[in-house]
């Protein structure tokens, strides 16, 4: 193929940049949507996706939730009345939990662990399309919400009265308020030139 068939410009040219700026207003693909459970999810998504993702999140919760030897330790991090006993290592799932979790606390004791309650989960169609598994979500004693699992991170603030996570469930971190800028671009100023070649 030595030639283009025809050239059409969408953003540039007579169509104009301004006219299409609206395209960028579509929501940025986020890491996932926060749902308390499958029934809340079913209000916006199909039942099969919701049930499947909720089940995956619950399983991931049992497998990867932080385990503590005492309820006090757990509540110190996750708040009063926010912890429960972990399934015993005798159970098939719990046995997996204790070994794969691999936390010091889990290995230093023979059983009777405590772990935080699952607040909800991150799921949704975007995660499903991107081949990502649903993730359990926890809140800590300061009502900060975290996703669990291997990619755990802060996802916003838990609003107990509204029953929702206050910021969109994007990868926005609790450090976002301290975002720094101008960490790139100094060389161009120094070289006083464009960057092309």
């Amino acid at each position: 193929m030595k030639r283009s068939r025809s050239i059409r410009l969408v953003l540039l040219g007579t169509v104009g940049l301004v006219g299409l700026a609206g395209c960028d207003d579509t929501p940025v693909a986020s890491e996932g949507q926060f749902f308390r459970d499958a029934s809340e999810c079913r209000k916006v998504l199909d039942a099969a996706t919701c049930d499947n993702q909720f089940a995956v999140a619950q399983k991931e919760h049992v497998r990867t939730a932080p385990k503590f030897t005492t309820r006090e330790q757990c509540e110190a991090q996750f708040g009063a009345a926010n912890c429960t006993t972990a399934p015993t290592p005798d159970g098939a799932q719990a046995g997996t939990a204790a070994t794969t979790q691999g936390q010091q606390t889990a290995q230093s004791s023979g059983g009777g662990f405590f772990m935080p309650l699952m607040l909800g989960y991150l799921g949704g169609q975007m995660m499903s399309r991107m081949g990502q598994s649903a993730q359990p979500v926890y809140r800590d004693a300061q009502n900060r919400a975290y996703s669990g699992g291997a990619s755990g991170r802060s996802i916003g603030t838990w609003n107990p009265s509204g029953g929702s996570v206050a910021t969109p469930a994007s990868a926005r971190s609790d450090a976002a308020s301290s975002t720094r800028r101008s960490g790139f671009g100094s060389s161009a100023t120094r070289m006083s030139s464009g960057s092309g070649s």
């Binding site: 926005r172 975002t179 790139f184």
Partner: peptide, 19 residues
């Protein structure tokens, strides 16, 4: 613009603080 790229300690963010 290149100088508008933000960093929050975990990742790069755009002007709307989106990753």
């Amino acid at each position: 613009h290149i100088d508008e790229i933000g960093w929050n300690g975990l990742g790069f963010l755009d002007v709307d603080d989106q990753p």
